[in-house]
Write a protein that binds this DNA or RNA. Structure first.
Lengths: 226, 226
DNA sequence: CGCCTATTTGAAAACCGTCAAAGTATGTGG
DNA sequence: CCACATACTTTGACGGTTTTCAAATAGGCG
């Protein structure tokens, strides 16, 4: 029962969709399941990277802390997505910390097991390349967005990026939005307030809904809202 | 002769080191060679991504332009390194532009050829995963560095990152350094002038040499130079 | 020697972060 | 069901950092 559930999740995740039932069963044997409460840390930056993970249920965020202690949210991941993979493929410690957002169940696969499995299943390796390529593209795109732009534009771009992945309603607090955009909570609030007045977004506690994506896009590349 | 040279370069590049001579010869048949003068563009952001490239000789930079026209240098690549790969593995257009720095020769491999070759050579796929993983790690690390830090720290980190890849002497102008750090030429000059006064770096026109890496590291994570 | 590019410097203004204080949902325990 | 605790949101004022604009100097190459 639990096993079946695991296989179901693996099958539906992007990177393992090419596997048949026998191969999935083989892979499943290598997995261990772990459960976390909200806000718990799965691993910390610098920890030895033994496992690579797939989310069965819940949502996690990947964070890097600067020397001043301020956190920067690199990414959010949901069901079927992998995380902790960069370290595993490079034989280094985790380059960032992973923290749950809600109750979360994950599947872990030991590094060695996964690497040998990969060597025997080229389609999976190609999927991983594709996923890593997409993430690299995202990271580089954000890199460009985060420098040399005003806070208003950075926030607009972060919201648009999130909306393209999860729809117009974004389940984030202003603080999380700020941490994803490299700014402060107060600045995020000031900007979103202005956007709300203009009818470009709608906000509820802990949620932001984009009403006018066109205007938001204009704003993200154009002059500031006066 | 030319063929042999190509195979030599491929053999020495990180991602193809696992191949034997027969496989290298097979791969070489798929390659075309192109030559560029300094400052020429190999491809532009948005171009259809048909080819993936390896550098035989010279150096290139990968740039993304923001809406205001300001360029941000994502990376520099040298002999044996690949570029243009993200787009190829994702079936999209190039996400950034590639421009030569000096006279440069490159090998191009058609997307379809390369993908099918990859499917038949798992070790190469694993190498690519490793390279992409490293680049992803770098990009995410820079992402953290670029936000929430002062310009002085951003510049220090950029210089240290470059030095770790190419030694203490960095062949870049202040403007390039600024473009890599998300700041302006003037700010880069003001900061490097202070560093020069302190004996931490030495500068010549178009070049910066790091003299005291320890102090620079301290500066990159600590308080500002007063 | 002259041109082009890189480097330098100064002053003013814009932008954003910090600090402080208060208002407002959400949930919990009594 | 109410009171209270907690976290999220809001607003204002101030100060520091960085950009912008303008102008001048200097190094390298033909």
């Amino acid at each position: 029962m639990a096993e079946t559930a695991r296989e179901e999740v693996l099958k539906q995740s992007l990177i393992f969709s090419s596997l048949n039932d026998r191969e999935l069963a083989e892979l499943t044997r290598f997995t261990i399941e772990r459960h976390f409460k909200p806000e718990e840390f799965i691993f910390w930056e610098g920890d030895t990277a033994d496992y690579f993970y797939i989310i069965i249920e819940g949502r996690i965020k990947v964070i890097k802390y600067s020397s001043s202690g301020k956190g920067f949210i690199i990414a959010f991941f949901g069901v079927g997505e992998m995380f902790g993979e960069v370290a595993v493929f490079e034989d280094k410690s985790y380059p960032a910390s992973a923290q749950t957002v809600v109750d979360t169940r994950i599947l872990g696969i030991k590094k060695e097991h996964f690497l040998s499995f990969l060597g025997n299943h080229p389609p999976v390796a190609l999927s991983i390349i594709s996923v890593l390529g997409g993430r690299l593209r995202d990271a580089q795109s954000r890199l460009k967005d985060m420098v040399g732009e005003r806070v208003e534009q950075r926030l607009a771009r972060t919201m648009l990026m999130l909306a393209s992945k999860m729809g117009p309603t974004l389940p984030f607090t202003r603080q999380e939005l700020a941490d994803m955009s490299g700014t402060t909570t107060e600045s995020a609030i000031r900007v979103t307030s202005r956007l709300k007045e203009r009818g470009i977004i709608k906000t509820v506690r802990g949620k932001i809904t984009i009403l006018d994506e066109t205007k938001l896009t204009l704003l993200s590349e154009g002059p500031p809202l006066i």
